[in-house]
Every structure is written in C-alpha cells, then in structure tokens.
C-alpha cells in the first residue's frame, strides 16, 4: 500500500528553484533512501513533506489524504515525524525535556508520554543516564540518538531522517544505521536522506538519486549500487 506520494512537486525560495519536478512514492513499511550531493534539494524535499516549506506546484499525498497545504503541526498529527539535519535539539533544555517535546501532539496524555519515554530509553539506554543533562552537553552520537528518540515520541507512521550520520564519529555511525533498521523493523516506514551513499544503499529497500532538483535515477538499493552513474558520481569507483 502506498503511504506517501509526491506528485511532481516544485519548491522555490523566491526566485531560485530548489526542486523542479520531483515525483516519488513510498510504500507502507518500506525503507527508502534518497541520495544526492550538497544542494541537490534533499533537505528542501523533507521540509516540503512535513509542511515547513510551501509548494509552488504539485501535490503531496499521505495515507490517502492530500497534505500539501497542511501546516507543519498538522502533518505531525498525521504521523509524519522528522529528524532534522544537524539534529536541532533544544540546547539549553534537558534530554528529558527534549523527549517530552517530541510528544507535543499527545501532550494531554501524561501516561502515554511516560510509556513512550520508557520505550525510547529501551532503544537508547544512554539517554536514560543523561536524562537530566542539558542537550548541549551531549556528544554528536548521543545528540543524534536523542533527536531520533524525540522523533519517535509521537509514535509516527513514517519517520524522515535528514543526514543522520552528519557530525557523528565514524564508529557510532554504524550503530545509528542499525537503529534506523530496528525502527524500520518495528513497522515504521522510513525515508532516509543521506550523503553516505554506500551505507544508505546497503540499508534501503529502494532508493532515488536526486540531482539539482530532479530525480534522475530510481531502483532497489543493489541496483543503484551497480549503476555506472552512481559509482562514478558518488562512490568514486
């Protein structure tokens, strides 16, 4: 079943066109990667999906409903969660407070929040140790885990990762990707945007290549790995 569908969306920052005509779809339970270099429009696409950037044309459908004109807080209620680029934690608030904020859409249900926090602690035990620490004191990897935990707090149907390996020390990167896979195995659909092409393709069921605002290639992870273009442009083989 198709969960998310972008129908030739176009996003502009005043005069400059960031996304020309992007169409893609994600089925329920899939792990889909979007790869591309700097400035290809990856982050713009994610921000358009969750309603922070407005579309100039095209449509976005989620779970059979049109969401392209929805405000950001509505799309979160629909079940779309976003782990933004560079984590974007609230630096002078504690880890616990950061996690609580993730459950804004269910803010009245304190029991639910408590249960959800326990689940996040189970997935990332380090966060339990650091619960009362300010988020600005976390290391890159811990901060990323905190951001992922925060995104899980609203029990999303789909979760979008924007460069989760950015600013994380290399031996932790593998663990972050394992976590992403775990999350996917729990039945949450994942949209992963990465510059770490090899790892992303290893992990993904399907993948798209985004180049200067256009989708230029599409296929399963292994297919793309073998494609001449990807090898030349991104893997340096």
């Amino acid at each position: 079943m198709m969960l998310l569908e972008l129908k030739s969306i176009r996003v502009q920052y005043s005069e400059i066109i960031a996304l020309h005509e992007v169409s893609l779809h994600i089925n329920e339970g899939e792990l889909v990667a979007v790869i591309g270099s700097n400035g290809a429009g990856k982050s713009t696409m994610l921000r358009a999906i969750c309603g922070i950037n407005r579309l100039s044309s095209g449509e976005i459908w989620f779970d059979g409903k049109k969401i392209s004109s929805m405000k950001a807080f509505k799309t979160v209620e629909m079940g779309i969660s976003h782990v933004p680029e560079g984590r974007r934690l609230f630096p002078r608030m504690t880890v616990y407070e950061n996690l609580t904020l993730g459950a804004w859409t269910k803010r009245k249900d304190t029991i639910y929040i408590q249960q959800q926090i326990e689940k996040v602690y189970h997935l990332f035990p380090i966060l339990k140790e650091r619960a009362s620490q300010k988020a600005e004191t976390l290391s890159g990897g811990q901060a990323q885990q905190c951001a992922i935990g925060r995104a899980l707090m609203c029990s999303p149907r789909m979760i979008m990762f924007d460069e989760p390996s950015l600013g994380v020390q290399p031996n932790i990167v593998a663990r972050i990707f394992e976590n992403i896979q775990q999350i996917n195995q729990q039945g949450i659909t994942v949209l992963l945007v990465e510059q770490n092409v090899k790892r992303a393709l290893d992990l993904a069921d399907r993948a798209y290549v985004l180049q200067t605002g256009n989708i230029v290639l599409e296929g399963t992870g292994t297919e793309l790995m073998k494609s001449v273009m990807v090898q030349k442009a991104y893997l340096g083989i």
Partner: peptide, 16 residues
C-alpha cells in the same frame, strides 16, 4: 522556551 531555543525544530515536532 522550546520555540526560543529552536523554532524550526519545535515546528517540525508539531508545535503550533
């Protein structure tokens, strides 16, 4: 307080 720290992040968590 969260919005003051990082408005974009708060927005993407669903804070109106």
């Amino acid at each position: 307080r969260a919005m003051k720290e990082d408005e974009l992040a708060a927005q993407s968590l669903g804070v109106d």
